[in-house]
Structures are given as C-alpha cells and as structure tokens.
C-alpha cells in the first residue's frame, strides 16, 4: 500500500494548470440578472451534471467568463447558447433542442403512455366481453334476504 502511494505520488505530474488573471467585466444590474438566468441552463463539460452556475472547474470558470463577456456585449440568450453549441454541441445545453434527432427523446414517453392506454383499453374491452359472455347467476331472493337479516 505504502509502495503504491509512493508510486502514485511520484507519477503525479508536478506541474499545474496556469490561470491567467483576466480583466474584470463590469455588468449592469440588468445584465447581471440576464447572466444569472442564463448560467443554470448551461452545462459544465468537465463535471457533466453541474451547470456553469455551480461549477468551479477551470474550464467552467473560463466559459463563465466567456459568457459574461458575451452578455456584456449585449448578446441575447439564443445567440450566446448558439455560440456555445457551435463549439461544444447540444450537450452544453441542459434542455436539448427539439429536432428530428431528439424526437424519440421528447416524444418517446408520450408514445409509450399512448401505447399503454391502448393496451389497457383492449384488455378492459375483452374482459367486459368475457363478463357478458358468462351469464350472471339468477339471484335467489329468499336466500339474499336471509343473508342480509343475519
């Protein structure tokens, strides 16, 4: 175990990623609100289930800075999303677009429910037919009255 840990420590690269100090991008209150609304919809590519709003990964911080710059230059949400999709693909969006490639994704669940309803309706209909076919026994009034009185 100790040997393994030592080997791991020796194998780990001694170098670290460089972070460049970037100039702060001032935003108006309105733009800050726009940014805050936009970031939760964008996915961090490194830590896939976090949004850019939550993530502290270096790439997420870079992308957040990038988006901040786009917001400052007055770009709309669809324009900014397109900018990221052009580079990283639809995966960067938490809400995938509705197009032929995603029809199964968006419509699949509804199709399944519809299918289940059809099967259920058929079952009910056939069981009703069975029930109708099996004629009900004539009720013995005297026996029923006796049963109820007890």
């Amino acid at each position: 175990m100790a040997v393994l840990l030592l080997a791991l420590a020796m194998a780990a690269p001694a170098f670290a990623q460089v972070t460049v100090e970037k100039p702060a991008i001032p935003l108006t209150a309105e733009q800050e609100a726009h940014l805050a609304e936009l970031l939760p919809d964008l996915r961090c590519l490194v830590c896939q289930n976090e949004s850019l709003a939550e993530s502290r990964a270096p790439l997420a911080l870079d992308l957040k800075y990038e988006v901040r710059g786009l917001v400052a230059s007055g770009k709309s949400s669809p324009e900014i999303k397109q900018y990221l999709v052009d580079r990283y693909g639809d995966f960067v969006l938490f809400r995938p677009p509705f197009d032929p490639r995603t029809w199964l994704l968006w419509l699949g669940p509804f199709a399944l429910v519809l299918l289940a309803l059809l099967v259920l309706m058929r079952q009910i209909r056939s069981s009703r037919r069975d029930a109708a076919a099996a004629a009900p026994k004539p009720v013995d009034d005297a026996a029923l009255k006796k049963l109820l009185d007890e």
């Binding site: 460049v20 490194v46 790439l59 870079d62 693909g89």
Partner: peptide, 14 residues
C-alpha cells in the same frame, strides 16, 4: 494558448 481561448473555440473540454 495561455488563457484557453483557442481551446474554447475548438470545443476542448479535456
């Protein structure tokens, strides 16, 4: 690519 800008343009995520 010191600040990673070219990486973003190429869609580099790792």
């Amino acid at each position: 690519d010191l600040d990673g800008r070219a990486g973003i343009d190429f869609g580099v995520y790792g």
